[in-house]
Design a protein around this nucleic acid. Structure first.
Length: 801
RNA sequence: GCCGGAGUGGUGGAAAGGCAGACACAGUGGACUCAAAAUCCACCGGUGGCGACAUCGUACGGGUUCAAGUCCCGUCUCCGGCACCA
């Protein structure tokens, strides 16, 4: 027998699968369906990463198994191709991003096919194609129509030297990634999607989906719902009410000052009656200069200025309390104003210490001379609340008091902010809006979609934070769709998250020209049965796409309220040095090299065998060689092949057990132990000396989802049939049970003997056998047996004193 | 700071509260070979013993249990997420 020629075999079967459309999802809407989704790659110039292979191999195994189980399987792939790296390559090499994108997609496609993934290649999506982004724009316009799109000011990272708006990733450490000059914060009017309107729905929807617990948790934290109260504080000097948000109305008697954000509008409104307005303005300007980086990473030291001319009145104690401005209060959360309770909040405590403000303890349990006490306990110094439990009763009691006084109401807040939906770059979907002097913002009519990204010679970023599209007069100047007067087009493009927010819908019906997907196809395929991807996408991408989906659901355009029924995540592959793979570290493994030198089956097997699928694991060239050895041993079985259409007696139970183990492990993503059990089986076969046809083809069947090429070849050689078209192999429970099993006999928890018994033997006879054992007799001799424990088919424990 | 997750041989990792270390890698010895690679066989947590065996051992300190890597309490370390969110 020749050595296994993986190159020839892999090429042969990849060609066969391709030409015969073996993995094509059919439009047979009566068949039971299974929709397996993996995160589509960004086609970077570096080509595929082994991390991609691991990410896709998990559901690849499940998808292949489901097909064999008779499901109509949709396992699609595509490319999330808009984005900065492509644009930067294009600028650097002076090639159009369209060409760079096509080149990279071709490279990725070739690499994916060489690994033998069973994707349905007839449904490939490219988010930068007109027929795709037409519908991205279409959904955007639907949101515009429903009032979910608005414009507002924000501060953006701006490089004054490049005159360009930068993403957070491109401005790390407060320096421009390109020219290394200092980034400044610039105010700019940008587009927003009102995702906060869906905050509650996004939170509640988590109750009905099967996501990994930590995925759910991260999404909950991201949405960040808190319940509390809005309380109005009167201002002594005028009729104004200063409204705050708090989750701790129980501590209202401990309020000794208030803090508002430096940008709070009340300052401008009463600036004439504030005696130190210059100091407040200076402080505000200083804060505005601070970058996001400085505000979050650096100084935690509290700063602020007292407002001279605004004094608040505590609604329950009627005491006068000072009002400060400080940047530890954000305009973007709650009302931009807080009541400060230094005794029971660490930030207020720091501030009070620094500014010498009173600290009044209202909950027992801590030592407020040392630090703030944030725990629970009995109320003190709080008049009507004294003596009761803060959490159980005080919150409720205070809420009703405030409601009666007419200065408070229950309220809910979310940490999640509206989605800044814009980029000042070329390589993205144009936002289909026209600015008209008379009509304001006007949507491009649906029938004019797609609003095409104009072909451009020079797509370098525009100056003063403008998109490069702003330079093209033929694009910018247009007629208003409403009044037909002169108007200007929006020149910002959509952010990279847009195209991926609905791609799973397009896969259902990717060639439809009249709808983003037909209702029939959506009704059949949705929801996605199993979605796998990286942990880094469980907040942004998943929440954004759930938001788009829920929006379409509310319009009656998709049949399910949630897009993904189940979500899992694979762990990273680290470099051989245990560090994250990166070019600068030089520890990157190129999957091409592995396919070339060891074969696709070895690569696929190894990424699943290297450890727990959900955990990070370091790459090991040697570990991979072990998988190569396993593949060669599978091939070598043909040398000891004998006739035989049924399992031999010696191996029968072994086969049934392994099939059971593999079948169950695949469902639980325990791929490493599934492979280990097949390795064990092969070790047993070699120890047995021969393998018959029934056995070898059974092995091929269960191994097929992991190593499809070699198994297809061997199976075809011995049966003349196509393995990918065979049903999934089954096992019988009765053959998984051994005739005799070994159980352990312990005395006082220490193993003294082993017994071979018939399964499910009765307790008394097993204990009698155990007590009759020499070693057991020895160690119980002269002692009183006080307890006998029998765990059926597992062990006997004799407790003796 | 807050919220998660994890700490098991030289390494990656297995163990529904019931034989700790499956499977694999590396290593050691041997077979085959002129030799090497490949392959095959044996050994492979520590300590003691020629030995069957004894004894300790799942980050650390306690606890529950006939029995703990697994459950509970406390401590330490590492990883991930959020982070002045009122």
């Amino acid at each position: 027998m020749d050595r296994y020629n993986y190159k020839a075999v892999e090429q042969k079967w990849q060609k066969y699968w391709d030409e015969n459309n073996v993995f094509k999802a059919t439009d047979d809407f009566d068949k039971k369906k299974f929709y397996a989704l993996v995160e589509f790659p960004y086609p970077s110039g570096h080509g595929m990463h082994v991390g991609h292979i691991k990410a896709y191999s998990g559901l690849e195994v499940v998808a292949r198994k489901r097909r064999m189980q008779g499901y109509n399987v949709l396992f699609p792939i595509g490319f999330d191709a808009y984005g900065l790296p492509t644009e930067n390559t294009a600028i650097k090499e002076k090639i159009h991003p369209r060409i760079v994108t096509d080149r990279n997609i071709e490279k990725f496609t070739g690499q994916l096919k060489k690994v033998g993934f069973s994707f349905d290649w007839s449904r490939v999506i490219d988010t930068t194609e007109e027929k795709y982004y037409k519908w991205t724009q279409w959904i955007f316009l639907k949101m515009f129509e429903k009032g979910l799109v608005f414009r507002d000011k924000t501060s953006v990272n701006y490089c004054p030297s490049c005159k360009v708006v930068l993403s957070n990733e491109d401005s790390q450490g407060g320096k421009c990634d390109v020219c290394h000059s200092d980034i400044i914060q610039k105010t700019k009017e940008v587009w927003y999607l009102r995702i906060t309107e869906y905050a509650d729905k996004l939170l509640q929807g988590l109750e009905q989906v099967d996501y990994l617990p930590n995925v759910k948790l991260q999404q909950q934290n991201w949405i960040g719902k808190s319940t509390g109260a809005f309380v109005d504080f009167s201002i002594k000097e005028n009729a104004e009410k200063l409204r705050i948000y708090t989750t701790r109305p129980d501590t209202l008697y401990g309020v000794t000052f208030m803090v508002i954000a430096p940008e709070h509008p009340i300052i401008q409104k009463y600036r004439d009656s504030i005696s130190n307005i210059e100091a407040l303005d200076d402080y505000k300007n200083e804060c505005a200069k601070k970058s996001e980086f400085e505000r979050t990473q650096l100084v935690k030291d509290k700063t602020g200025v007292k407002i001279e001319g605004l004094t608040a009145i505590n609604p329950v104690t009627k005491k006068e309390i000072p009002v400060y401005i400080s940047d530890y209060v954000m305009m973007g959360y709650g009302t931009g104003a807080i009541m400060a309770v230094p005794a029971h909040d660490t930030r207020d405590y720091d501030f009070a210490k620094k500014f010498g403000i009173d600290i009044i303890e209202v909950i027992k349990g801590g030592d407020i001379s040392k630090e703030a006490y944030t725990g629970d306990g009995e109320m003190i110094n709080s008049d009507i609340l004294n003596g009761i439990d803060n959490k159980k009763d005080a919150i409720e009691k205070m809420l009703s008091v405030l409601e009666n006084l007419g200065c408070g109401e229950r309220g809910v807040q979310y940490k999640m902010k509206d989605w800044a939906f814009n980029r000042q770059r070329y390589w993205g979907e144009p936002i289909p809006i026209v600015h008209c002097q008379h009509c304001g913002m006007v949507a491009v009519p649906y029938e004019e979609l797609p609003l095409k990204l104009p072909a451009l010679e020079n797509f370098e970023p525009g100056t003063d934070g403008e998109s490069p599209l702003a330079k093209i007069e033929s694009f910018v100047n247009c007629k208003c769709p409403k009044c037909n007067g002169d108007a200007k087009r929006e020149t910002d493009t959509m952010p990279q998250w847009a195209g991926s927010s609905w791609y799973f819908l397009r896969y259902c019906d990717p060639h439809n020209d009249s709808e983003f997907a037909s209702q029939e196809a959506l009704k059949y395929w949705l929801p996605v049965d199993w979605y796998n991807g990286g942990m880094e996408h469980v907040t942004r991408h998943m929440i954004y796409s759930r938001f788009w989906h829920k929006f379409l659901y509310d319009l009656g355009l998709v049949p399910t309220s949630e897009p993904y029924a189940k979500r899992t995540a694979q762990g990273l592959i680290l470099g051989e040095d245990g560090e994250k793979m990166s070019k600068s570290r030089g520890n990157v493994v190129d999957p091409n090299d592995i396919v070339e030198n060891y074969g696709a089956d070895v690569l696929r097997l190894y990424v699943l065998f290297m450890g727990d699928y959900e955990k990070a694991a370091p790459w090991s060239e040697n570990g991979m060689k072990g998988c190569k050895r396993f593949i060669d041993r599978v091939w070598g079985l043909q040398e000891i092949l004998t006739d035989g259409e049924e399992y031999s007696d010696k191996l029968r139970s072994n086969f049934h057990k392994t099939i059971k183990k593999v079948s169950e492990d695949i469902e639980n993503m325990k791929f490493n132990t599934a492979i280990a059990s097949m390795m064990s089986l092969i070790n047993d076969i070699y120890a047995n000396g021969t393998v018959n046809k029934a056995e070898l083809s059974a092995l091929c069947m269960m191994l097929n989802p992991f190593a499809p090429h070699i198994t297809e070849e061997i199976y075809n050689t011995i049966t003349g049939k196509i393995l990918s078209e065979q049903p999934w192999i089954t096992y019988e429970e009765k053959f998984c049970i051994d005739e005799t099993i070994e159980i352990v006999v312990q005395v006082n928890g220490k193993i003294k003997a082993k017994l071979n018994i018939v399964p499910d033997s009765d307790r008394d006879s097993v204990i009698a056998m155990a007590l009759a054992d020499e070693k057991v007799k020895e160690s119980t001799d002269g002692r009183n047996i006080i307890k006998q424990i029998y765990v059926p088919n597992k062990l006997v424990n004799i407790v003796a004193k």
